[in-house]
Design a protein around this nucleic acid. Structure first.
Length: 506
RNA sequence: GGCCCGUUCGUCUAGGGGUUAGGACGCGUCCCUUUCACGGACGAAACACGGGUUCGAUUCCCGUACGGGCUACCA
């Protein structure tokens, strides 16, 4: 019988959740939902030295904003496999049980080497021109562990309460072959695999042991993670095997990395592209560093998710704008790429623009009004709605609306020099003064009436340059549809601005 | 250095033994427009290289180059 589909997202609370992590969560979520399965949030807080306050809460909030909600786990209601924090699970002795089992079956052993001794060993090996110094089948013979020390001495050290770690006993020369849903078969020789620490001297399990134990106990069907984990997968295969759980192990999927837009390398916490790397604003209280979020930059979660989904995956046809439901319906690991994808800031903006345009003017007004109020402009909903209608075609983000149309809220104090130099001449003042008179006499002030008036007035006044009218009333060379803009501004405001402009120009 | 993974327009990608190698972002030109945009049309732009296999390789295999990841009592 096929196992129930259960995927987990298992971040460690060492900082804000990076967009690469969000994508891993997203792919897991999409797959789980597509197959009617579960999506679990597990917190892997086994490294107490790197624990960051607020990180866990951030992760939960970020997932919520993105709409990638687990139905089980920390912050989302405990399911049948609680607790979901590894530090709490450790207290229950869950990991030690498995480590003991491995020791008992001869596949793991305790080691007493101090970090100084380990350093020495690496230095010694480097000096001897060993290319990859590691604790393995050969080097462990010269270290202080249960394999080299006499049994009674091992017992003595253990009884004395001295610190020890538990290491995986990796065979010296054995082919380890495993299957990855995305990459196919991968083969590594065990001589390349080191004797990984399973249980640290503080009693905490390492990631390698903890995630395996939890994936098994939580009945996880598919383990999805970034490509950076591929090199340690052989160790994991061995652990499953020695635990007698190879049949029950989740299917593996190693996602391609998200790369920097320019140059090379993994996308980092900060990028000079100008776009955020985090879903929400993140403040790292340790370093005092602030990172802006997609949310605060004016992105909609749907656009963010859509963009992320297309980074390394595609539905197999030309669709790009897809709702969460469509993503779920179409997702499969078979269509995930093998190669890393460079993050494209321009395309990311385009995605948000597409979602911006799908919103009604009223919806946009609801988002824009608070932003305007923050700038000190309070206008009624009808005004802001019309404002949004006029501005939205030029914007990528709601956060840009004010800057793109600030002239709707304040009269210009200067006039675009390029346009004026080119188009303003000795006759202009007369022409536009007369135009102002005609406008003053206009009773009905609407887009259409303004349009008609401009047309009607030209035989008498000569050519009216629309861009000059624009600059006179807004100060800038580009902007919203002219007659719509004048109509929204209102007769009184437009005349005031025109008279002010004419007074200051010769 | 070693090991592992990868390589189609600048970028994200489709495709797959015989195609005018398709789409999207960005870029350019034109059309629409009494302004600003949207929009529409068109265009420039790619199979890393070398060997095989084959009637035929961008596609399959092997090398090379290049890129990336890993190489902790971190995840």
């Amino acid at each position: 019988m096929e196992k129930r589909v259960r995927l987990r997202f298992a971040p460690s609370p060492t900082g804000g959740l990076h967009m690469g992590g969000v994508r891993t969560a997203l792919f897991s979520y999409l797959f789980a939902k597509k197959h009617g399965g579960d999506f679990v949030l597990r917190i892997e807080d086994t490294d107490q030295t790197r624990y960051v306050n607020g990180a866990e809460e951030y992760i939960i909030n970020a997932l919520k904003w993105c709409g990638i909600e687990p139905n089980e786990g920390v912050g989302f209601g405990d399911g049948p496999y609680a607790p979901y924090r590894q530090s709490e699970r450790k207290e229950l002795g869950i990991y030690k049980k498995y480590a003991d089992q491995l020791i008992a079956s001869g596949h793991a052993y305790v080691a007493f080497d101090t970090s100084e001794e380990l350093d020495e060993m690496r230095k010694r090996l480097e000096a001897a021109k060993v290319v990859a110094p590691q604790y393995n089948a050969i080097t462990r013979q010269n270290m202080r562990n249960a394999l080299t020390l006499p049994e009674d001495e091992v017992k003595k050290i253990m009884d004395s309460g001295a610190p020890y770690v538990v290491r995986l006993k990796v065979p010296r020369n054995e082919e380890i072959r495993f299957h990855d849903i995305i990459r196919g078969w991968v083969t590594v020789n065990s001589s390349q695999v080191d004797d990984k620490v399973l249980l640290k001297s503080d009693g905490m399990p390492t990631y390698h042991l903890a995630h395996i134990v939890d994936d098994i106990e939580m009945k996880i069907s598919h383990a999805v993670r970034g490509e950076e984990w591929l090199p340690s997968a052989p160790s994991h295969i061995l652990i499953y095997r020695y635990l007698g759980l190879e049949e029950d192990m989740p299917k593996l999927a190693h996602l391609p990395l998200i790369l920097k837009p320019d140059g090379n390398g993994k996308l980092s916490k900060r990028d000079k592209s100008g776009l955020p790397m985090f879903p929400l604003d993140w403040f790292d209280e340790r370093t005092g560093e602030k990172y802006v979020g997609y949310k605060e930059s004016g992105f909609t979660p749907d656009a963010f998710i859509n963009m992320l989904a297309l980074l390394g995956w595609n539905p197999g046809d030309n669709r790009e704008i897809m709702s969460k439901e469509e993503l779920i319906a179409n997702f499969s690991f078979e269509r995930v790429n093998k190669s890393g994808a460079k993050f494209d800031p321009e395309k990311t903006k385009w995605f948000n623009q597409q979602y911006l345009r799908m919103q009604t003017d009223e919806q946009l007004a609801d988002s824009v009004m608070p932003l305007l109020e923050a700038k000190g402009f309070k206008k009624d909903k009808a005004f802001v709605t019309e404002f949004c209608r006029l501005i939205k075609e030029k914007a990528h983000f709601v956060t840009e609306f004010y800057d793109l149309g600030s002239y709707f809220f304040a009269a210009p104090t200067s006039y675009d020099e390029k346009v004026m130099t080119k188009k303003w001449n000795e006759n202009s003042k007369t022409t536009y003064s007369k135009l102002t008179e005609k406008l003053t006499a206009l009773d009905t002030w609407t887009t259409n009436s303004l349009h008609d008036l401009f047309a009607a007035v030209e035989p008498e006044l000569g050519k009216i340059d629309m861009q000059v009218v624009r600059v006179l009333t807004t100060g800038v060379a580009g902007g919203a549809q002219l007659f719509d803009m004048l109509a929204l501004l209102g007769k009184e405001e437009v005349l005031t601005r025109l008279n002010k402009a004419l007074a200051s120009l010769s």
